Amino acid sequence: MNNPSKATGTDVPKSDKQLPEKDQKPRMTTIEKLEAKKLEVSALMIQRAWFIHVDKTIFQLLKHTICAAEQFVAHEILKTVSPIEAKLVKDPSMKCKVRFRFNGETFPPFIVFKIFLHGDGSNNKYFSGKNLLKPSSKAVLDACNIMGKRKFHQQIMEDDRLFQESKIADQIDIVTMQDYLQYSSLMDETPASSGGRNNQWRKLNLRNIPKTMMIYDIVHYAETGAISKRLQEEMKYLLQKPRTVEMRQHQLQIVSEIRYPSFHPVYRPYKQQNKMKHLGRRSKQAQMKVEKMKNAYMTPKEPKASKATTEPQKDTQSTKKQEMIVISTSSLDIVKVKDSTSDSEFEKEEKELFAWYQDLYVDYSSLLDTC
């Protein structure tokens, strides 16, 4: 038997010292490791500082947004959300006020709004169509026609859902005092769109903001991180701390200003009209129409009318070249004559027609001057 200690097997891995110099991996010293860690920590600190700067910028722009929305464009935004409520807010007798706030558990926050009614100390009464309108009355049919069948069915399904959850969703279901308290708390939590008394905060989306305002660019930048060109131009001024009240108002006006796109009409020079070339050949109807216009308007303006009576009238139509195409078969020969016109003749006709139109315009302007 062979001694296992003397066996020279190849399964034993070699250490780094036994490997050749080319295969050995360079080891990092402790100083190099400390420098690498310092660079990594420095990069993380710079990255964190940049994120904090961006978050502060977004928050300051959003703060300008809600202040400008309350002071200047509350009615414009409310018209896109709910036109009926916008009419009520515009009514001076209602004494309504629209407030905008931030909401959300993560950054950046989203904007919410709420309509407040100042009743001057008097109690407000809430009217619900579900309680006032009887099921068998004509008013329910009129409400269905005004709302539309789809929205009417959604309202019915919402009432059924509330009944399944609480079992007391109508005044008919009240039997005891406990039922009344449960019904009252349900009405306080139910939004006004479902017949309740909850004037809750509603979220404002990009669809509810006009795109012509800077508010749209700010909200879009907060949600997606993409900055528009006009916001990039005004950001340096908007991020400045207002020193006076006028500067503060000017910043809010820039944010809420409605900017319409500028259209620059392109005018073609008058001299270039003669240089326009006709694209493609005219149809037979167009050629006949041009000939009729020439015969009706251009013949009376010829200077020498006496010679026109003695001399034979020349044919105004341009001579057309004819091409003969012969197709021969075993039984017969087919002959076809094809008319071909050159582009130079069409250009000549266009120049004559334009000259006639120019003379007619001069005569018409002279008549207006004499009148």
Rank of each mutant, 00 (worst) to 15 (best):
Y357C: 13
G225T: 03
N274H: 05
A355L: 14
V140C: 03
L368W: 00
V175P: 00
M157N: 12
T176W: 03
E70M: 11
I227W: 04
R282C: 07
S128I: 00
L360W: 12
Q253V: 02
S193C: 07
Q249L: 13
S306Y: 11
K351S: 12
D363E: 12
E165W: 03
G225V: 05
P312G: 15
S82K: 07
I66T: 14
S137G: 12
D120M: 08
I209M: 01
M1T: 07
R243A: 09
V12N: 15
E311T: 11
V335E: 14
V89K: 02
K97A: 04
A308I: 08
Q155C: 05
E345C: 09
K25V: 13
P92N: 11
Q71D: 10
E233A: 14
S283H: 09
S365D: 06
Y297E: 05
F107G: 09
H118M: 09
K304D: 08
L368N: 01
K22G: 02
D315H: 03
D217V: 00
L252M: 12
F116T: 09
E165V: 13
P191N: 03
K151P: 00
M288L: 07
P269G: 09
Q240S: 13
L206F: 03
H53M: 01
E165Y: 04
V140G: 01
K271R: 10
S283R: 07
I168E: 05
N123A: 15
A169L: 06
E233C: 05
L44M: 08
V89Q: 05
D173P: 00
I31G: 10
L44S: 07
V219P: 00
S136F: 02
N124H: 09
E85D: 06
Q164P: 00
Q164S: 12
E70D: 10
K314V: 04
K292E: 09
S15D: 09
T80V: 14
I146H: 07
F59V: 06
S15F: 04
S128A: 05
T212Y: 00
V81E: 09
I209K: 02
K79W: 14
Y270N: 11
K167C: 08
T329G: 15
K125L: 15
F110I: 12
N199K: 05
S185L: 08
K25T: 11
N208G: 10
A49H: 03
S184N: 12
K33R: 12
P108R: 00
P269Q: 05
N208A: 13
R48L: 04
S137V: 11
Q322P: 01
R207H: 08
Q178E: 13
G280C: 05
T29F: 13
F100H: 10
G148K: 07
T8G: 04
K6D: 11
A305P: 08
R282Y: 03
Y126G: 03
Y183A: 01
D363Q: 12
M94Y: 10
K38S: 04
E76Q: 10
I58G: 01
E246N: 15
G121E: 07
E40H: 06
K294M: 11
E76C: 04
K294P: 00
N131L: 06
T10R: 13
D159W: 06
T80D: 09
K351W: 06
